[in-house]
Simulated assay, not measured.
Amino acid sequence: MIALQGIEKRYGDTTALHEVDLTIQDGEFLAILGPSGCGKTTLLRLLAGFMNPTVGTIQFGEKEVANPRKSSKPEKRNIGMVFQSFALWPHMNVEEHVRFALKNHRFSNKSTANEQESRVTEVLQLVGMEAFRKRYPAALSGGQQQRVALARAIAPEPDILLMDEPLSALDAELRISMRKEIKQIHRKLGATIIYVTHDQAEALAMADRVLVMQQGRIEQADKPEVIYQRPETTFVATFVGKANLVKGSWKGDIFTPADTNLCWKEAGVAEQLKQQHVFPVRPEQWELLSAEEEGLPGQITLSQFQGTERHYVIQVGDMEYQASLPISLPAWREGDHVALQVKGQHAASSTEPTMLEIT
């Protein structure tokens, strides 16, 4: 188990991390998600031992590995690391990269040449690179190079695998393919994985738990489904799932959008969002009705075909809302006037039109 208590990291007058408390269970796949500059890489560097916290402590199991006065060096922590850049050596072929890790990692238990050779083959088969073991990095594609970097990191069987945006240099198709590879490797290894990314799709697809950060603080940490369906803050709502925040007023579990008589029933909206007088609606939760029907009156300003769905931008007063509808539904055109309604809420609005006063 990894435990961070009261972690802060300051660079002069700039605070990169504010009072971070976090526990990571053995074997957990934790994704740290957030925009550039939110502190996620700083947090990973602290876990790796590349720097000391300004305040707070870090424990690996029962052992304290970092505090403001001292920090265990990276080589004294049983970790593997995969960087954003592949960091491969041009003079070493694929199998030499993996063998180097086995020979030089302090916690590797493969001491004899036979044990090392067996482990090299095992790891290269695991990442699908056994057939390329004699190739040098210059002769490999980007996806193959990332597999080599991953093989090098996991070869010594570290307790903790730290990954810093490892797929960001790959194209879209390769990223999707590598997500599956990493998930399968985690299943087979059982190691703790801490995975830093700014890509919400990666975090939601792979992690057991997602930690969302903004401006050096933890906004929310929970299962991917909870993060997506039950955001606790406006930042999480808009960053994960790109929710539209409809302004209005709450009375109990009923929400009324501003300047309307609509009534929407709560579907697990967090108390903090209620206090900010907003109702989060993800793009796929909207339905578009004809302008004469009951809903938020708006006009379509943008329509984009996206294969399995169409994306719309709808101007409602001074607000722009985004909607995603299945391609099976009739298409709306730019300039069309529509009524925006939340799926499943039409009946509530129709039966309780005067339940709330607009403030």
Rank of each mutant, 00 (worst) to 15 (best):
I32F: 03
I32M: 11
L33H: 06
G34S: 11
G34D: 04
G34N: 03
P35A: 14
S36G: 09
G37A: 06
G37Y: 04
G37E: 03
C38T: 08
C38D: 01
K40F: 01
K40Y: 04
T41P: 04
T41V: 08
T42I: 02
L43I: 05
L43P: 04
L44R: 10
L44T: 09
L44P: 02
L44N: 11
R45T: 03
R45E: 06
R45G: 01
L46Y: 01
L46C: 06
L46F: 01
L47F: 04
L47I: 12
L47R: 03
G49L: 07
G49V: 10
G49A: 11
F50D: 07
F50P: 00
M51W: 00
M51L: 13
M51Q: 15
M51P: 00
M51R: 10
N52T: 13
N52L: 12
T54Y: 03
T54H: 02
T54F: 06
V55L: 10
G56W: 02
G56P: 05
G56A: 10
G56R: 08
T57S: 10
T57N: 09
T57F: 02
T57K: 15
I58P: 00
I58E: 02
I58A: 07
Q59Y: 11
Q59K: 15
Q59P: 00
Q59R: 15
Q59M: 13
F60W: 14
F60S: 04
G61A: 09
G61V: 13
G61C: 07
E62H: 10
K63I: 12
K63L: 07
K63N: 09
V65E: 06
V65D: 01
V65N: 06
A66Q: 04
A66V: 12
A66W: 03
A66L: 07
N67V: 10
N67S: 14
N67R: 13
N67A: 06
N67L: 06
P68T: 13
P68W: 11
P68R: 13
R69N: 14
R69C: 02
K70L: 05
K70R: 15
K70E: 14
K70C: 07
S71Q: 13
S71H: 05
S71P: 00
